[in-house]
């Protein structure tokens, strides 16, 4: 059982998001970077499956050298080895094409992603990989159980949940509830130092999109307070002034 976990490196969840260079770049000054929370879940699930079925877990990241510290953390959590594709992750399509090339070269039974990265929120890489590899893809999974050459997934659908059984190979994306993320222990941190982190150069791919500028959400107007004694007044305001309820 060879498992590949796609990992994006993202600003810590409490980061105040600002932009620089005339709003053309994310301002990473003083920002702490972490493993994308959904990727932490897929990594943990991959380790659980690998432990039960004598498998291996490789982590792949498309990113520059500054991602290495976070990749080491994934190794400390328990991944066997890591691959970094040495390129700025331009967009989800670029990332997926790079990872698809790795999958084709090395061969895996299971590829996991997060349901989305918390920075670019594309939610696209899982399905893109499915199409690029012509594999089945199962998106937004809160459960994954490997059994007898197949995986049973529980995935979110609009207004509900669905159980889906897939043949291998398959690519799937992780949703919260999949598992409790593991944290590195001392032994893992020591072991991570000597685990292989292979750096490979990117494949040439056609440019799909260009990020040109960023914008912060408009500042909110000051809150208008309504006296709790007359709470019902809120309904009147929402209906007749804000015209937001019928």
């Amino acid at each position: 059982m060879k498992i590949l976990v796609c990992m994006s490196v993202v600003p810590d969840t409490t980061t105040k998001i600002t932009f620089t260079d005339n709003n053309t770049k994310f301002n990473s000054q003083g920002v702490q970077f972490i493993i994308n929370p959904y990727d932490e879940l897929s990594l943990t699930k991959a380790l659980e499956i690998a432990e039960q079925h004598s498998g291996t877990v490789t982590v792949v990241n498309v990113g520059l050298a500054d991602a290495d510290a976070v990749i080491r953390k994934a190794l400390a959590i328990g991944a066997n080895d890591a691959i970094r594709i040495n390129a700025e992750p331009k967009d989800a399509q670029f990332v997926a094409e790079q990872i698809a090339a790795i999958v084709k070269a090395n061969g895996y039974d299971l590829v996991l992603t997060g349901r989305e990265s918390i920075d670019y929120n594309g939610g696209m890489v899982c399905s893109l990989l499915g199409a690029l590899l012509d594999w089945p893809s199962v998106n937004v999974c809160a459960k994954m159980v490997y059994n007898d050459g197949k995986i049973e997934f529980e995935r979110d659908i609009d207004g509900g949940r669905q159980t889906v059984v897939s043949n291998l190979p398959v690519v799937a994306s992780a949703q919260k509830d999949l598992c409790e993320p593991r944290i590195p222990n001392m032994k893992g941190i020591m072991a991570a130092r000597t685990k292989p982190l292979q750096v490979v150069e990117p494949a040439q791919v056609e440019v799909a999109s260009s990020y040109e500028a960023f914008e912060s959400p408009a500042a909110k107007q000051a809150v208008r307070m309504i006296d709790a004694e007359n709470a019902g007044q809120l309904i009147d305001i929402l209906k007749n002034e804000a015209k937001i309820i019928a």
Binding site: I118, N121, S210, E215, P217
Partner: peptide
């Protein structure tokens, strides 16, 4: 062909040109 999309979990927007 430039679109505006939500990024950073509600904490920002990006203007992206779709090149193909």
């Amino acid at each position: 062909f430039k679109v505006k999309r939500g990024v950073f979990s509600g904490k920002g927007f990006a203007y992206v040109t779709l090149d193909k």
